[in-house]
Design a protein around this nucleic acid. Structure first.
Lengths: 102, 102
DNA sequence: CATACATATGAACATATGCTCATATATAGT
DNA sequence: ACTATATATGAGCATATGTTCATATGTATG
């Protein structure tokens, strides 16, 4: 195929796509997102269920928040996190399905 | 939600899924896979089109080969690479579509 | 078999990543 | 205001990752 016949991706697209997949490439974040896809959770609950430190969970939530993959609401001292990007959850679930059926 | 009511992922599933996404999280590999999804390419062609060194391309192809995301056939001195995992290409294209339409 | 060409591979290096530890901030109750 | 609880954040550290450079391997041809 000749150079000019290629369909090239815009560098902005490539950056966006790699960022989406980078988020999903870490086991910890997969567990957090999968958990949040099932129920709204506060931070300590996530830490307990996933057997992680509060700090580690909070750092990851900070990242997920910045990328707008999760949102939260406050109730007193407690923050309840939930998923905020259905498309990313869809990619995750597809990969899970594919992995489980092969 | 109580602990016993959660649907947990098997650690094997988590590892598989994170590995799929890890492959797709690097801009270079995205470009290579997207290129190979359009046409079968030899190594030097990939290097030229993507403006990368032959060595860098070869290292990445080695990884993609080990994960069985690409395959190749030999023709003389030349190796022609192509995609060998439609599901991964599907995930990639979905993420591209999503990125381009937002 | 010597040479040229295509590709692969190992070592080294710089950067990125995810965790822990310590501490800061925010909110509620006394 | 003091204390307890929930969460966030910064620094430091160990490991992982992607590239380059040099060199090796494999294949065709004179």
């Amino acid at each position: 195929m000749k150079m000019e016949d290629h369909s090239f991706l815009k560098s902005e697209t490539i950056e966006n796509v790699s960022q989406i997949f980078k988020v999903l490439s870490d086991p910890t974040r997969i567990k957090i997102l999968y958990l949040l896809s099932q129920e709204e959770c506060n931070v300590n609950h996530i830490a307990e269920v996933l057997e992680m430190s509060q700090s580690a969970v909070s750092h990851q939530l900070s990242m997920l928040r910045n990328l707008r993959l999760v949102k939260y609401r406050r109730e007193g001292k407690t923050l309840f996190y939930s998923c905020d990007d259905e498309h990313v959850i869809s990619l995750l679930k597809q990969a899970i399905d594919h992995s489980e059926h092969h």
